[in-house]
């Protein structure tokens, strides 16, 4: 099992925000058994549908405003990469755009 280093302070804040956004837009999905970490895969581990990823990033787009461009972010990824997307990839993208 690979382990990503602990998130930096700004990444920790984004991870908290992302986790909150997940619970907000997808309340019907139970996350209790699967803690959300930087290594968590949205589809494989949380069983999110691909459309849920659009909903989640839409919510994050509203929270972070013009700092983030998720359609552009996804455009840089091939479909298999999107299916294997981790929480850490999204957190690092947002944190990078906030710097």
């Amino acid at each position: 099992m690979t382990t990503t280093p602990a998130p930096r302070a700004d990444e920790a804040a984004v991870l908290t925000e992302l986790t909150e956004a997940l619970h907000h837009v997808l309340p019907e999905i139970g996350f209790e058994d699967t803690p959300v970490t930087m290594d968590t895969r949205f589809v494989e581990d949380l069983d999110l549908e691909s459309i849920d990823l659009v909903t989640l990033t839409g919510e994050l787009g509203r929270r972070y405003g013009g700092h983030v461009d998720f359609p552009g972010f996804f455009a840089s990824l091939e479909l298999p990469e999107i299916i294997g997307l981790t929480v850490g990839q999204v957190v690092r993208y947002i944190a990078g755009r906030l710097r």
Binding site: S50, V54, G72, F74, L79
Partner: peptide, 15 residues
């Protein structure tokens, strides 16, 4: 569903 576009051609059309 709409992700067939959102994850493929839609961003280029928007850009």
């Amino acid at each position: 569903n709409l992700t067939s576009y959102y994850f493929t051609v839609a961003p280029a059309l928007a850009a």
